[in-house]
């Protein structure tokens, strides 16, 4: 991108940063329309969770014995469940739980991944060998088995599940960060920073970490979807966030008993869950395509440049 060398920007760096964001959004909508749809779904879900108090027409635990298992109506848009609670309100509050679990567990997992990943990749040697064998032995077990065992130790609860999901996904994700670190630390600019007398700590956090942000961000979006799904699974099995807190997984579980009588009851949380996972995944894919320079200039941007040049 040619930049005007003689421009008289008063705040060139700020303008550049804003410009980069605008350019990124422009590319997202232009090159990855599906990804933009995902981003919108993700954003709606985020806002729904955040403003659940204002959006929900009823309280999530407002029991109404006279209105049990009602079909959708003007009063209850998505109907009511076996205790006469408004399904729409519970889905809106469920978004909040999903977001809380999703974001905190994912953040925790990324922190763990980055911490293990960059140190093992950078320092190598015996430390790397021992840490990675520990990671291996953790990853031998199927994810769900580990989760069930861990939950049965700590007992169900919101922060327990956040902690366990964060730990499990964090340890597994360290592999990806380690791989990225391994290739980045051989870059000449890292050697060069060594040659100007930068300490290991500085090399790690100033020169390597910023250069592996693309895989970190991508890991974040893929993990977010996985964590939300895992939380729903755990809640469905009754090992997640205990009732009466509304979770999509828990709602599916409660609706299971009325599958034949009121099938809509299990469809609504399913739809919410599917949409959320789909949105995040599609958005994550688009993000990966746009952020990873090796994948950049894929079909769309290459054909764009050809169209412009001819």
């Amino acid at each position: 991108m040619a930049r005007n060398t003689f421009s008289m920007d008063s705040q060139p760096s700020l303008n550049k940063k804003m410009g980069a964001v605008v350019k990124f959004l422009d590319r997202l909508f232009r090159e990855k329309p599906l990804g933009a749809v995902g981003a919108v779904i993700f954003l709606i879900m985020l806002l729904t969770g955040f403003f659940a108090n204002f959006l929900a027409p009823y309280g999530y635990n407002e029991i109404n014995p006279l209105e049990m298992l009602k079909a959708p109506s003007a009063q209850f848009w998505l109907g009511t469940d076996a205790l006469g609670r408004d399904v729409l309100s519970r889905i809106i509050y469920g978004a909040r739980i999903s977001m809380i679990v999703g974001f905190s567990a994912t953040t925790m997992s990324i922190l763990i991944s980055v911490l293990i990943g960059i140190t093992t990749g950078f320092f190598g040697g015996k430390y790397d060998l021992i840490m990675q064998r520990l990671v291996d032995s953790w990853m031998i077990f199927p994810g769900l088995v580990v989760l069930i065992v861990a939950i049965s130790i700590t007992g169900p609860g919101l922060w327990n599940i956040v902690f366990i999901l964060g730990l499990t996904y964090g340890i597994a994700g360290s592999r990806i960060i380690r791989g990225a670190t391994l290739s980045t630390k051989e870059e000449i600019y890292v050697h060069a920073s060594n040659a100007i007398g930068a300490s290991s700590f500085r090399q790690l956090f100033r020169h390597i970490l910023p250069n592996i942000m693309a895989p970190v961000i991508i890991l974040f979006t893929t993990r977010l979807a996985a964590v939300i799904l895992a939380e729903a699974t755990m809640s469905f099995l009754g090992l997640g966030v205990p009732p009466p807190t509304p979770t999509w997984g828990g709602m599916l579980n409660e609706a299971r008993g009325y599958m034949l009588q009121v099938p809509l009851l299990s469809i609504w949380p399913g739809v919410a869950l599917t949409l959320a996972i789909y949105g995040i995944n599609v958005f994550g894919d688009a993000l990966r395509d746009l952020l990873d320079p090796r994948l950049r200039g894929g079909l769309s941007s290459y054909s764009d440049s050809i169209a412009k040049s001819t």
Binding site: H191, H207, P210
Partner: peptide, 14 residues
């Protein structure tokens, strides 16, 4: 020290 590869001896994100 000045390195051999000017194309890769500067950190792309700084």
């Amino acid at each position: 020290m000045v390195f051999q590869e000017p194309m890769t001896s500067l950190n792309p994100v700084l």
